[in-house]
Amino acid sequence: MSSPKEPKISVVEIGMGIDLHGQNATVAATRACRNAIETNSLPGLARLLPNGDFSKMRIDVKLGVPLPFLNDVNVDVVQKQFPYGSVNVTIEVGGLVCSSGVVLEEQGDREGDDRAIIVVAAVAVRC
Results as ranks from 00 to 15, higher is better:
L48G: 02
R115A: 06
M57W: 00
E111N: 10
Q107K: 15
V11L: 12
V61P: 05
E38S: 14
H21L: 05
S86Q: 14
R115Y: 01
L42S: 08
E6W: 01
D72S: 13
E111W: 06
T30S: 05
V61D: 03
R31L: 14
V65A: 11
Y84E: 07
K62Y: 08
A116C: 08
A36Q: 00
V77N: 07
V97S: 02
V65Y: 09
L104N: 09
Q81L: 10
K5W: 07
G15C: 07
L96H: 12
T26W: 06
L48N: 10
V103W: 03
I18S: 04
C33T: 02
K62L: 15
L42E: 01
G22T: 01
L48A: 07
D53I: 08
D109E: 05
P43Y: 00
G15R: 03
L70H: 09
G108D: 03
G15H: 09
K56D: 01
Q23P: 00
V78Q: 06
C98L: 10
S100C: 09
L96R: 15
E38L: 08
A116Q: 13
P66C: 02
L63K: 03
V61G: 02
T26V: 05
V89I: 13
M57S: 04
G15S: 10
A116W: 03
S10D: 09
E105T: 15
Q79K: 15
G52T: 11
M57G: 05
P7S: 12
V65H: 12
V65D: 06
S55Q: 10
L49V: 08
G108N: 02
G17H: 11
T26C: 01
D76A: 13
K80F: 04
V27N: 11
A25R: 05
E38D: 13
T39W: 00
V12G: 02
E13K: 13
V73R: 05
L104A: 07
G101Q: 11
V75A: 07
E38A: 12
P4H: 09
L70G: 04
N74H: 12
E6K: 08
L49D: 00
T30M: 14
F69S: 02
A32T: 11
F54H: 13
D76S: 14
S99K: 13
A29H: 08
D19F: 04
N51H: 14
N40K: 14
N51F: 09
K62M: 14
E6H: 06
A116G: 11
D114G: 02
R58H: 12
N88F: 09
Q81F: 02
R58N: 13
I18D: 06
R34D: 08
P43A: 00
R31V: 03
R47C: 06
Q23F: 03
L20Y: 06
A25Q: 07
S86K: 15
Q107C: 14
V77Q: 13
G44M: 00
P43Q: 00
G44F: 01
E111Y: 12
F82H: 00
V119A: 06
G17D: 04
Q107E: 15
Q81E: 15
L42H: 06
G108W: 02
I18W: 02
